[in-house]
Computed example of a mutant assay.
Amino acid sequence: MRDFAGRVAVVTGAGSGIGRALARRLAAEGMRLALADIEPGALEGTRSLLAGGGAEVTARPLDVGDGAAVRAFADHVYETFGAVHVLCNNAGVFTGGQMWTRPFADFEWMFRVNTFGVLHGVQAFVPRMIEQDTEGHVVNTASVAGLFAGPFSGGYAMTKFATYAATEVLAHEFAVTGSKLRASVLCPGGVRTRIHEAARNRPASLDAGHTADQAFIDEVISNVTTKGIPPEDVADAVVKAIREETFLILTHESYRPGLAARARALAEGRLPDLPDFESRD
């Protein structure tokens, strides 16, 4: 899809970080925006910023882990704009720690948002995007943690590997069914976001105590994000990937050799080396 002007984009997790950057970048391309985020105040900040710049935008607070709420959001978007051309399933959360230390609630929370949130978005929007019979693109936000598995982030890696796999399946399904839609998986490395503060939106019903191993990985992720690239660079890469129909969107070129090394190790039956999640170009 090369022509963005006048078309409609949906972005979840649009209140901050990569989601806000995506919304701003797509608005700059002349798109109409439907935005969602679980934080009403942050979402309103993005909405007012874009509306103040002349963009046509609608926004609704949304928990992407709630399938019924996502379907209702899709209804609202289609009632408002009549079509969707770019779907960015971007909302995500993180918590870490050893897999045998952290409670099941950690895994439940991350799967609810990171994996089921993507599935809810796909099932709520894609059938109608196909029915439109127009060009379109789905971008699912995974992570380099969905390509390389590292210690102390088992639950997060599980959800992001699943998101990667779901997007590859989706891309193949679009191809074999002759759909005009395309799919990309976004796998960011270190980006200046608030992912390390995701617990601010954790439901009380899935709350859990803090452990030393969790505190360790929280500090690591905080350092990586603080030193990371601007989210605007990620948004630029996404727009370029949509135009060029690139499947895998990496934010750091330094991860490409690691992918080749990982593939070689797996082909030889070896455990891949630990990734350097602080790699920067």
Rank of each mutant, 00 (worst) to 15 (best):
M1L: 12
A5N: 13
G6V: 10
R7Q: 13
G15I: 02
G15V: 09
S16W: 00
G17K: 11
G17N: 10
G19S: 06
A21M: 07
A21K: 06
L22D: 05
R24C: 10
R25D: 10
G30I: 14
I38K: 00
P40W: 08
G45C: 07
A51Q: 13
A55C: 11
T58R: 13
A59C: 07
A59G: 11
R60Y: 03
V64P: 01
G65E: 04
G65C: 07
D66W: 10
G67T: 09
A68M: 06
A69L: 12
A72M: 04
A72R: 14
E79F: 00
T80F: 02
F81N: 08
G82S: 09
V84G: 03
L87M: 09
C88R: 10
N90E: 07
T95Q: 12
G96V: 08
G97R: 03
G97M: 03
M99C: 10
F116H: 09
F116C: 00
G117A: 09
L119C: 00
G121V: 06
V122T: 11
V122M: 10
V122F: 03
A124P: 11
F125T: 09
P127L: 08
P127I: 07
P127C: 03
T134D: 12
G136Y: 05
A142G: 02
A142V: 04
A145W: 00
G146M: 02
P151L: 03
F152E: 11
Y156H: 08
Y156R: 03
A157P: 00
A157I: 05
M158R: 01
T159Y: 02
T159G: 12
K160S: 01
A162G: 07
T163Y: 00
L170C: 09
H172S: 12
A175E: 14
V176G: 01
T177V: 02
T177L: 00
G178P: 03
L181M: 14
R182Q: 12
V185K: 05
V185C: 07
C187Y: 02
G189I: 06
R194P: 03
H196F: 11
A199H: 14
R200I: 03
N201Y: 12
P203T: 00
A204W: 01
S205N: 05
D207E: 13
A208H: 15
G209K: 10
A215C: 00
I217E: 06
V220H: 01
I221K: 02
T225E: 14
T226W: 00
I229G: 01
I229T: 09
P230D: 13
D233A: 13
D236E: 15
D236K: 14
A237R: 15
V238N: 07
R243G: 11
E244V: 06
E245N: 15
I249P: 03
L250A: 08
H252A: 09
P257H: 11
L259K: 04
A265V: 08
L266E: 15
G269D: 09
R270L: 10
D273N: 11
D273V: 00
L274C: 00
D276V: 08
F277V: 05
E278I: 02
